[in-house]
């Protein structure tokens, strides 16, 4: 028996399947969404960068915030790992240090959703990580 009996079937299917390629859709328009880079060098991973990254991906996703989360190499702030760099559309990137899941939640709630600054910004004027 055929799977798609009418247009509603197809639309339902499409909505369910969207998630499969959502990551690709988003990466096609990185400039229009929140871009987050998580430092995943040895020191970052040791201090919990992977948990932070997973947490951010899940949280942003469940709140339906359009964001692209990527991993990047050492940012040179080993003392403050895990570090993440957040770029809001059209704005300069900011780096946050010591981002555990609690901090990550604060960054999402305050900075990403409302544009309020939160503690833990690493002030150094720096080049974006892979400045190419």
């Amino acid at each position: 028996m055929s799977k798609v009996k009418n247009l509603q079937d197809l639309k339902k299917m499409r909505d369910e399947l969207k998630g499969k390629i959502n990551l690709r859709e988003k990466s096609d328009h990185p400039e229009s969404m929140v871009q987050i880079k998580v430092s995943m060098a040895t020191c970052g991973i040791a201090s919990g960068a992977r948990e932070t990254m997973n947490y951010m991906i899940d949280e942003l996703d469940s709140q339906a915030i359009d964001a692209v989360v990527t991993q990047t190499g050492c940012m040179g702030y080993c003392y403050a790992e895990p570090t993440i760099e957040v770029t809001m559309p059209g704005e300069k990137p900011l780096v946050f240090g010591n981002v555990n899941t609690k901090k990550a939640s604060e960054i999402i709630e305050k900075y990403i959703k409302n544009g309020e600054l939160v503690d833990g910004i690493i002030p150094d004027s720096y080049e974006t990580i892979d400045g190419k």
Binding site: N6, K18, R24, D28
Partner: peptide, 25 residues
């Protein structure tokens, strides 16, 4: 270079066959 051409689900996720469905409807 975006979808797996051997997987109809990925085409549907990209609004595939919606044009046909809407026209027929």
């Amino acid at each position: 270079g975006f979808i797996n051409p051997e997987n109809i689900d990925e085409y549907i996720a990209r609004d595939g066959y919606s044009a046909l469905g809407t026209i027929l409807d």
